[in-house]
Simulated assay, not measured.
Amino acid sequence: MTLRTEAFLDRVQERGNYETQQEAERAARVVPALLGAHLVGEERAELAARFPETYALILLSPLQAAEPLSPERFVRATAAWIEGATEKTAKWDVGAVLTRSVLLQLPVGFDLLFGRSLST
């Protein structure tokens, strides 16, 4: 594991208040996979540059939707991908992975969903 990957997982674990690094890694894999599948256009590549290589490759996987998900549908999809998750815990997982620099790359509305207004 590279230092950048290790630091990223440590930050996710801290932000998500996860007891184990395995819990943090689960969120760190699911969130970029869903983002990559549901972002269209150049946003995918710009966003991938914000993640360590392992997670950037997950984000850039060949799966790609025809249109982006709304923030609310994104949270529901995240909950569906994580065993035992609810929309509330999925929102927590997403918030643990998405940093301010990542949120700045997402379509309008994602920042407000996670309690941050970045448009000001």
Rank of each mutant, 00 (worst) to 15 (best):
R11G: 04
Q13D: 01
E14Q: 15
E19F: 08
Q21P: 05
Q22F: 12
Q22Y: 14
A27T: 01
A27I: 00
A28T: 00
A28K: 02
V30I: 14
V31K: 03
P32V: 00
A33P: 00
G36C: 01
G36F: 00
G36Q: 00
A37G: 14
V40G: 09
G41Y: 05
E42I: 11
R44V: 01
A45Q: 15
A45V: 11
L47D: 05
A48N: 02
F51I: 03
F51M: 06
F51R: 04
T54M: 06
T54K: 14
Y55S: 02
A56K: 03
L57V: 04
S61Q: 10
P62C: 09
P62E: 15
Q64Y: 01
A65H: 12
E67R: 13
E67D: 09
S70R: 14
F74W: 04
F74A: 03
V75S: 01
V75N: 03
A77W: 07
T78H: 10
A79N: 10
A79H: 07
A79L: 04
A80Y: 09
E83K: 12
E83Q: 15
G84N: 13
T86G: 03
E87A: 07
A90N: 05
K91G: 06
W92C: 01
D93A: 15
D93H: 15
D93M: 08
V94M: 05
A96D: 03
R100E: 13
R100V: 14
R100G: 03
V102P: 05
L103W: 00
L103I: 01
L103M: 06
L106C: 04
L106Y: 12
L106K: 10
